[in-house]
Structures are given as structure tokens and as C-alpha cells.
Computed example of a mutant assay.
Amino acid sequence: MDVVTYSLKTDRVSSDKYYLSIAAFTDRVLKKGEQMLKFQVCSFHAWKQAAKPSSFEEGLLELLIMGVYWNVYIDASKELKGVPGRLLATVNDWRDGTDRFKLTLNKLKGLLSTLFISKRTYEKTTAEKNTVNLEKLLVFLKATGEFKQEVKRLESWLEYLKQLDEKEAVRIISSAVTFAEWFRTESRAALDVYTSRVQDFISCKWPGHRWKEDYVFCGSPVVEYHLNMVGAEIMNRIYHAGFMGRKEKVLLLPHCMTKPSAGKCQARSTGRGYVCTGCSADCQVNSLTRLGKKKNFQVRIVPHESSIASTKTDDSLFPENAGVIGVSCVLNLISGGWMLVEKGVAPQCVLLDYCGCKNHWHEDGISTALNEKQLMKILESQNYLHL
């Protein structure tokens, strides 16, 4: 198997070990986060008590995201000027609102992103930790078009921080950044074995994405892979009970998992997305579709690139109040999960064992796959922590 950026199959046979590793490391992250940020998260939740309550784990994840993105992007955000930033944000809004001019808008996004957005490696920054710079960071993240769901969550934090005493706001931002620095170091030790080729891709292949709409997305540093891995594990824990309580279950698979025996995938478009027609016995989408009929879950193929994270994903892909398992490559996990929450479903996710879609990662395209054992544990276990 050609490893492009990451692979959960360190022994090239199974990704079972990864799921044990990510569970153990997530336990450490939550324990450390509780030690460092419990008061800050609880105070934030008390302030927004009129809104739908969130769990401590979800609030902690939001602060971790704030800290990681601060360390990765704060210097770049200070370089992004107002007019280019607003223009990029407008182009991204247009892309989400129409399919008619998508090709043209993708080219425009690629042009503007390459010209105006700096992708820096993870490094310590001297930027002052205050709400003014946090607001600049969110403007930058919005301009990239890659962090829509994360920005929505962090905007609530910004609103909260602005009504605090300035020193207290600075203290909370500083704590989030310190937590993210701890996370970066510890995640490298725990998870680097699964992301060993990310830097090689950035050094050798990413320059070829200049002028393309995925320029920012494909240049993501290792820490963002680790952030999404842990974020997905946290969100699975939070939402698993709600998922099990939903009568209808839907498995959303990316098109990059299809493996037609000859020619193009023969999936059929229906009123609820694309469904497998069984054209290839060697295709995991086919085997999962047959498994779904036995285990009472539906299977839908998401035609939009390799991700379910797009806001253009059709609501009709799943019934109202369904339990949905999204399957995605690593960098789409947090945004995809929160997108599903926003649509009113109870989400779970299973990672693709590796990435390989032709649109982003591989010149010829590699048929991707998932861990079916992990999928069945999510579908059948009553308590996610006991998977």
C-alpha cells in the first residue's frame, strides 16, 4: 500500500492497534485538560447556560482547537490583509451556495489562497495573547474556507472572552495555547507512528497544490492530523449514547472507497444519495452494503470529493433524527462531526485507514478502506468507552 500522508495500519495488516492507541492517548489529553482548564470551561458553560449545554469534554476540545490553531496560524493571520480576507470569505460563501459556478469558484479560491494565505509550520510565536489577535485568527480561519464548524464554536468563545476583564481573557487564551503546546509534544510521541509521511508530503508533493482550491487543506501540519484524531475520539464518546438511541442508522462512505472491477463505479443515484449496485465483488462499499442489510443500517456514498464535511451535503442523505456514522480521512473529522450535529443527527465516525483520493492526495487515486471491526463495535456496543 502506498502511504500518502498517514496510515492507521502500522503493520500493514490491521488498524486495530491504532484504536487502542487513540483511546489511551485521549484519556491522557482529557486528564491533562481537566487539570489545566476545568475552571475555564465550566465558567464558559455557565455564561452560555441559556444556550444548548455542552459537555466538559466538548468545551475542552474547543479550547484545544483554539490553542492549536493559534500556534499554527496566528502569525499568518497577522499577514492577511482586510480586503483579501473578505474576498476569500465571500468566495467561500459563494462556493457553498451554488454548484453552477463551482469550477470557476474553485479556481478563484486556489488563486487567492496561494497569493494571500501563508501556511507556516508549527512554531512558537511572540504574538500577544489577547482578544484582538484571537479575532484576527478567526477572520483568517474563515478566509481559508476549511474551518467553518470550528470557527462557529470559537466565535462563542471570543464573545465570552470579550466581556471578561482583559487580564482574565488573556489568561484563558494563554492557558489554551500552553495546553496546545503540551498536546503537540505528547501527540508526536503517541501518534507519530501513524502520521510518518505527512512532512514528506508537505515537502515534496504539497508545492504541486499551489493555485488549487485545496492548497490550505493539503498543507496541514502533523499537529492538525493529531488534533482531528483526538477530536474524533472525544466526539464519538460524547455522542455515542445518543447515536444508539436513534432508530435508523446510516453509514456515509466517501467515493474514494469504491473499487470498481472495471471502468467507473456503477453506484445509482436515488432520492437519498448514491447506493451501491454491487458491480465489484472486491469493493468494500459492496461488502458494507450487504452487511448493512443484515445488520439493519443503510449505506450511502457521498459523491462530494472524499469528505462528508461539506455544507453542501444533501440533508436527504439521512432521515431526520437518524444516527449517522461518517467515514472520512483524518483532516475532515472534527468539521464533519460538528456538521452532522448541526443537521440534528447523532454522529459517530470511523477513520479511513489511509487517504488516497485522486482529488487531493494521489495522482492516480488509491481505493481507501476502513476497519470493519471498529464499525461493528460502534453499531453494537452500548457503551463507547467499553469498545
Rank of each mutant, 00 (worst) to 15 (best):
Asn130Lys: 10
Met66Arg: 02
Ala169Pro: 00
Glu155Asn: 13
Val132Met: 04
Lys102Leu: 14
Arg100Val: 15
Phe147Leu: 12
Leu105Ser: 09
Val72Phe: 05
Ala176Leu: 01
Ala143Pro: 06
Asp96Ile: 01
Leu103Asn: 12
Ser175Trp: 04
Val151Pro: 00
Ala76Trp: 00
Met66Ala: 15
Thr121Lys: 10
Leu138His: 05
Val151Ala: 11
Thr126Ser: 10
Glu166Ile: 12
Asp200Tyr: 07
Lys102Thr: 10
Lys102Glu: 12
Glu128Gln: 10
Leu88Ile: 07
Glu150Asn: 12
Asn130Val: 00
Ala76Leu: 02
Gln149Phe: 07
Ser196Asn: 13
Glu62Asn: 13
Ser118Met: 04
Glu146Tyr: 04
Thr121Tyr: 01
Leu63Phe: 14
Val151Asn: 03
Ile173Pro: 02
Leu87Gly: 04
Thr131His: 05
Asp200Phe: 06
Leu138Ile: 11
Leu64Ala: 09
Gly97Gln: 14
Asn130Ala: 04
Asp75His: 03
Ser156Gly: 14
Gln163Met: 15
Leu64Lys: 00
Ile65Gln: 11
Thr104His: 09
Trp70Ile: 02
Asn92Gly: 05
Val132Gln: 09
Thr121Ala: 10
Ile117Tyr: 03
Phe183Pro: 00
Val72Tyr: 01
Glu181Leu: 09
Leu105Lys: 09
Lys148Gln: 05
Ser118Val: 09
Lys109Phe: 09
Glu79Ile: 03
Gln163Glu: 15
Glu146Arg: 03
Tyr69Lys: 05
Gln149Val: 02
Gly67Ile: 07
Leu115Cys: 13
Asp99Trp: 09
Lys78Gly: 00
Leu88Gln: 10
Val193Tyr: 00
Leu88Asn: 03
Ser175Val: 08
Trp70Ala: 02
Arg86Ser: 14
Asp192Arg: 14
Glu79Thr: 08
Ala169Arg: 03
Ile173Asp: 00
Lys119Glu: 10
Lys136Glu: 11
Ser174Arg: 08
Asn106Lys: 12
Ala189Tyr: 08
Leu158Ser: 13
Trp70Val: 01
Leu87Tyr: 11
Trp157Thr: 12
Val198Asn: 04
Trp70Asn: 03
Val151Cys: 11
Ser175Ile: 08
Asp165Trp: 04
Leu87Pro: 01
Leu158Gly: 02
Asn133Pro: 03
Val170Arg: 11
Val198Gly: 02
Ala127Lys: 02
Glu166Asn: 13
Glu159Tyr: 09
Val83Asn: 14
Leu64Asn: 01
Glu150Ala: 14
Ala189Arg: 11
Leu137Trp: 02
Ala189Trp: 06
Ser187Cys: 06
Leu105Phe: 11
Val132Arg: 06
Ala143Thr: 05
Lys167Pro: 05
Val132Trp: 03
Leu141Thr: 07
Leu64Gln: 05
Gln199Val: 13
Leu191Trp: 07
Thr90Ile: 04
Glu168Cys: 02
Ala180Trp: 09
Leu88Glu: 06
Lys167Asn: 14
Thr185Ser: 11
Trp94Ile: 15
Phe116Arg: 06
Thr144Met: 04
Ile173Ser: 06
Thr178Ala: 10
Trp70Gln: 00
Leu137Cys: 08
Arg95Phe: 04
Lys81Arg: 14
Gly110Asp: 13
Asp192Ile: 12
Thr98Val: 11
Ser113Leu: 07
Phe147Asn: 12
